[in-house]
Write a protein that binds this DNA or RNA. Structure first.
Lengths: 116, 116
DNA sequence: GTGGACTGAAACGGAAGCGAAACAATTTGC
DNA sequence: GCAAATTGTTTCGCTTCCGTTTCAGTCCAC
């Protein structure tokens, strides 16, 4: 069984979630940054700069910069791969997990409030 | 009857939609810009700069700049209010309606593909 | 009609994003 | 051992966004 919704409901859901994020002064992540963050937290590790760049079809500097920003927000952390020291492994953080969790709960709540 | 989903499904849905947007080089709107666009297309008109700023809890220049950007993308259009010439009325465009419609369809499609 | 209130836009300096290219550090292949 | 390939970062010039402040145009009360 899959999730079923009409386009008007989907758009309303998206709007409500975005509005709550904007209003609550949540970290103002770009679409790309959010996509990277969710990929790190939803897809199985390990995550590398190269892997994320390929997954999102963007250049590597885009990933590096996003990691700089989200690292400053403590949403993710970087660690050298000891087995292949060229690699950087991106790992989750407690703060990031909490943020993602709350974000997911927010979507569910807004979905539940949707008019028919 | 409301839309029911688990947080993990909600996050996966969000990720899939963002990934498709990023990968397809869709207009790279910020979270705020997207919130403004959806509000214009979902909430009943008329829409003014001041009204949108209040609805999103942001300053007026944020709205003005977002309208500049989205106007250049032809997603919205501006018109002086003839009854009160201080006001600017923001209106929908054919291109914008098409973009929003496709966006909604995309969400629905990703929701339908979600694993249980 | 004139002063004050209101609306949206513009100006300003600063922060952060972009793509492309160049860059060190490391591993691999021979 | 050493050139070639690979990885992530940095640099360059440019664009866009931010908040604050200032400005021009319009309306309204008196």
């Amino acid at each position: 069984m899959s999730i079923s919704m009409r386009p008007s409901q989907a758009l309303r859901l998206w709007q409500q979630v975005l509005l709550s994020q904007v209003r609550d002064d949540a970290p103002d992540l770009t679409m790309r940054q959010t996509a990277i963050l969710l990929t790190i937290y939803l897809d199985p590790p390990p995550h590398t700069v190269r892997g994320l760049a390929a997954r999102l079809n963007v250049t590597k500097p885009v990933i590096t910069r996003a990691l700089d920003t989200m690292g400053a927000l403590k949403l993710v952390s970087r660690h050298r791969d000891e087995l292949d020291k060229r690699n950087v492994l991106i790992r989750r953080t407690v703060e990031g997990a909490l943020f993602v969790e709350r974000f997911g709960d927010g979507i569910v709540a807004k979905a539940h409030e949707l008019p028919i």
